[in-house]
Design a protein around this nucleic acid. Sequence first.
DNA 1: TGCCATTTCGTGCATATACACGAATGTAGC
DNA 2: GCTACATTCGTGTATATGCACGAAATGGCA
Lengths: 128, 128
Amino acid sequence: MSFRRAARAVTAYYDRLLVPSGITVNQYSLLINLSRAAPCSAASLSHAMGLERTTLVRNLKPLMGAGMIRDLAEEGERDRKLTLTPAGAKTLKTAQALWKKAQAGLKKQLGRENCAKLMNAAAQLEKI
Amino acid sequence: MSFRRAARAVTAYYDRLLVPSGITVNQYSLLINLSRAAPCSAASLSHAMGLERTTLVRNLKPLMGAGMIRDLAEEGERDRKLTLTPAGAKTLKTAQALWKKAQAGLKKQLGRENCAKLMNAAAQLEKI
DNA sequence: TGCCATTTCGTGCATATACACGAATGTAGC
DNA sequence: GCTACATTCGTGTATATGCACGAAATGGCA
């Protein structure tokens, strides 16, 4: 499917521009979603991101290892309380600027109208 | 990014409809590309698919394990000569019918025009 | 208080993706 | 024939994705 190939290409494009921030576009997406939902459980974050919960659990690992995300929940508590650390917030801020540049470049490439239509189609496709 | 979420949703949709064939849409893509290029090396197939060579090498494994793909190259030869086995061709045929149904359903969902524009945008995005 | 259903969680397994690296084969020029 | 370069290959490592499974905590109800 050409759609999947396009998704790979777009991911690679964002990743390339995000290199200076030290995170991937996937991790960027996780951080920005967490910044809006924190403190939150893994289940609720995965729901907000439309991502399988166990996938999210694993995607957290490198970011927690890098000290960008912390879990404020006490020992033995069921729900996790995931939050950004100051380091995570700083990285996110750096990445956000780069992401905006990437987004602008993509819009320019596709044309504003095509880009809007693409976003629209993507929103529809998520519900298939 | 909503685009990647959409790609995941689309993949899941195709995979769901392809279940009776026993392969995923990713493996379907590999088989159909191989059916057009066989006999061919891993490098040339990966190029035809716009896929990283080592990714393709690994994606071949389950299909070779299932006896759908065979390598006709002699021992010690540098280039592989990948081909579909009869079993692989049979699976592909089954999957192809299911894939067409899925494609038609998606077109119906999006509308013919939106679908065409999406394809167009995807083709552009692959070159970013 | 005690039991059961619900919710949340993490890991094992399988697949997908790509970079870095080095091994082996093939080719061109001498 | 030999050397240097190009091509092809596979694996180690890291990340991403989701299903199946079972463990643990929580909440509701008798």
